[in-house]
Amino acid sequence: MLKIENLHVEVEGSPILKGIDLEIQAGEVHAIMGPNGSGKSTLAYVLAGREGYEVTKGRVTYKGQDLLEMSPEARAAEGVFLGFQYPVAIPGVSNVYFLKAALNALRKHRGEDPLDAIDFMKLSKEKAALVQLSDELTKRSVNEGFSGGEKKRNEIYQMAMLEPSLAVLDETDSGLDIDALKVIADGLNTLRSPERAMLVITHYQRLLDYIVPDVVHVLIDGQIVRTGDKDLAKRLEAEGYAEVRNAMQP
């Protein structure tokens, strides 16, 4: 589904990603772990199409298409979803209102009829329940006055509404207490499916106790230095990134 080849990315002239290779198949959950400043969020933003990230080398192919050529909304239409580490508040734009516009734009792209208000609200209630997001929050301005945990649950609610093929989840666990983490993990596990791939970016192993990944990559200083199964995450937790970094020194 997603193939990243020798990806180099600069931000304001400084190299951040220095040759990433990564391939994800439908149905797989990959985790990317790495310390602060290793380039995790940059990778997420590049995949979603944020401006200000210059790809200097390499390519990204998604469902056979050149992903990097596509606008953020075209990527979304093709099924790419980014769960933000810091979801922005948008005063004056209500959550359900913009999601309805978003969902109907996607449905139009897929050649489906738009959902009417009643069907939309029914779907919204069902998906909000998945992450225990209250009706009141779904109707409020996007993320305005939301707590940290509510913002993250709102991200997963939106993902559930939009049903992406590839979900890139950028530190969805950051700032969450253990109860909120379980709610989010349960929501995400429900959304696992043979047609859907997930790229779960995290600093800590904790999230991966609940969302068990098929593959774990360790990203340090813009490069994937180790790839393994879920046990790699546990080793990382026990030994720390320093050990892994030292172990790779020649």
């Binding site: 606008s71 979304a76 004056g92």
Partner: peptide, 20 residues
């Protein structure tokens, strides 16, 4: 950017934010 990652076309996203 947030609105666009959800599939809202840029022009509509701009109009939404302007009206808001």
């Amino acid at each position: 950017f947030y609105l666009r990652t959800r599939g809202i076309p840029e022009e509509l996203a701009r109009a939404m934010l302007t009206y808001a």
